[in-house]
Nucleic acid binder design. Structure first.
Ligand SMILES: [Mn+2]
Ligand SMILES: [Mn+2]
Ligand SMILES: [Mn+2]
Ligand SMILES: [Mn+2]
Lengths: 228, 228
DNA sequence: CCGATAATTTAGTCTTACCTAAATTATTAT
DNA sequence: ATAATAATTTAGGTAAGACTAAATTATCGG
C-alpha cells in the first residue's frame, strides 16, 4: 500500500524514456525533449535529478543519453499499464473512439490508485491490448512479448492480420478507422512500388494504396503462407 | 473549449471555501487550513493571491475571512460536480462502496475533461445526487435547492426519509451502511433523550439509538404527519 | 585533422505551493 | 479597560519544474 511515489512529471519522463529506449539504445536529450514538449535544457536538469535519486530511476552519463534502471522500468510500466487500461476503459464503457482517448488517459494515468487500476482491469476482463492494439503490461508489470512486423516490410502475396497501430495523430487514427484498418482485420498485399514504397493492400473487397508514412505505423502478424 | 484554467491546489481551496461558506459567513483562515490540511500561514498567502488574480476568484479582507466571487463559485461548483459525478460513477460501475470513493474522486476531479464529465453524466442518466446523497451541481453549474433537516432536529412520532449523509469518515460510513441507514430509507423517531440528545429511531423492524455525533450528519426529508 | 554544425550542458531566473518562526491584530474574560 | 489568548499575517526559506541565454562538447564532411 505505498501509493504516489513519483510525480506526473517524473512519470511522463520515465514513460517516454521507456518508449525511446525500445530500440536498445539510450534515449537522447533532444528526442526526449521533443516527445515531452519540454526544452532540452530542462530535460538535462530533470534526468540528472532522476539519475541521482535514492533508488536511481535512470542511468545517465553526460552526452550519452538516458536509459532506465530496473526500478525506473517498473515505474514506467506502471504508468503505461495505467494509460492503456484507461484508454480501453474509456472506449469500452463510455463510447470514446480510439482517436479521442489519448489526451484523457495522459492525465488520468498519474492519479488513479492501484485499487482503481485493479478494478478497471477486472471489469474489462484483464485485457491484454488497448484500443490501438498496444500490449498492456501485466499486473506484475511484465510487458508481454509480441511478434509483429511493420506492414511496410510485407510484399505482394503475403497475408497478415493487423495487430497494432502505433500512432497518436488523431487525424490519422480517424482515417484508418474510416478505412477499416483496425486491429483484428485481415489483409493481403497485392502490389509494391519500390520507388515510393507504396503498398497496395486488399482488405475485404477493398483495395488501398498506402504510403510508408502509414505502413510503418501498422504492425501485423504475418499469416503463414500455407503454400510451400 | 477552454479547459484547465486553475491548478488542483486552487480547485481544492475553492471547493473548501464553498463548503465552509454555506452558512452565509466568510471562511476563516484557520478553518480552511484545517480542512485543507495546510498551515494557516500558507493559506493566507494563497488566498491573497486568489484575491488579486485577473478575474478574482475570491473576496478577501485581512482578518475578515474569504468568500467566493461569482467566478470563484462557478469554478468551485465545477470541481464539486466532477467530484460527485466521479463518486457516483465509481460506485455504480466499479462496485466501490460509499466509504471507498472519496479519496479517489479527490484526485480525479482535477484532471477529467469537460468531455469526460459529460460522458459520465450521460452514462449515468444525469444523476442529481452522489452516493452520499449530496446534490450534484447541474451541467450549467447551478446547485439545486434541497429541503432537508438534520435528523437531530426531529422528535418522537415524526417520520422521515434519509436523503443525505454528510460524512467523510470511512468508519462511520461503513457503520451506517451496515445499519442500513442510507439515502432513501424511511424511519420514525420513537424516543428522544434530552440530556445526551440521543434519538431512538425505528427503521423497518429495527430500533437504533443514535447520538448527536451521528444524527447531525444525517439529513432527512420530513414526512408530513397525515394526522391533523 | 579541423572547422562548422548540432547536441548537450551550465548558469541564472521564474512561478507555484508549500513550510517555520516571528510579528501583529482580534477577541475574550476578568 | 486590559491582559492573556487565539487567530492571522509577514518574512524568509525550500523544492519542483519549467524557461532563456550562453558555454561546452560531439560529430561529421572535407
Ligand atoms: Mn495513448
Ligand atoms: Mn501523462
Ligand atoms: Mn466525497
Ligand atoms: Mn481534490
Amino acid at each position: 500500500m505505498k501509493e504516489r511515489t513519483s510525480t506526473p512529471s517524473t512519470q511522463d519522463y520515465l514513460k517516454h524514456i521507456y518508449e525511446l529506449t525500445q530500440n536498445g539504445r539510450p534515449a537522447s536529450t533532444n528526442d526526449l525533449a521533443r516527445e515531452l514538449d519540454i526544452k532540452p535544457a530542462s530535460v538535462t536538469g530533470k534526468i540528472q535529478k532522476l539519475a541521482k535519486d535514492k533508488p536511481a530511476l535512470v542511468e545517465y552519463q553526460k552526452h550519452q543519453g538516458v536509459s532506465l534502471t530496473p526500478s525506473g522500468k517498473k515505474a514506467a510500466l506502471e504508468v503505461i499499464r495505467h494509460h492503456r487500461l484507461l484508454e480501453t476503459w474509456l472506449v469500452q464503457t463510455l463510447g470514446y473512439s480510439w482517436d479521442e482517448v489519448h489526451a484523457e488517459a495522459e492525465r488520468l494515468e498519474h492519479v488513479i490508485s492501484e485499487d482503481l487500476e485493479r478494478r478497471i482491469a477486472a471489469a474489462l476482463g484483464n485485457p491484454t491490448r488497448d484500443p490501438h492494439g498496444e500490449l498492456i503490461p501485466t499486473d506484475g508489470l511484465k510487458m508481454p512479448n509480441e511478434d509483429t512486423t511493420p506492414l511496410s516490410a510485407l510484399r505482394p502475396n503475403q497475408n497478415a492480420t493487423i495487430r497494432r497501430v502505433s500512432a497518436q495523430d488523431e487525424n490519422l487514427l480517424r482515417h484508418l478507422n474510416d478505412l477499416g484498418l483496425v486491429p483484428g482485420v485481415r489483409l493481403e498485399i497485392t502490389d509494391f512500388s519500390p520507388f515510393d514504397n507504396n503498398l497496395t493492400i486488399k482488405c475485404g473487397t477493398q483495395y488501398f494504396v498506402l504510403g510508408s508514412n502509414i505502413t510503418t505505423k501498422i504492425f501485423v502478424e504475418v499469416v503463414n503462407s500455407s503454400r510451400r
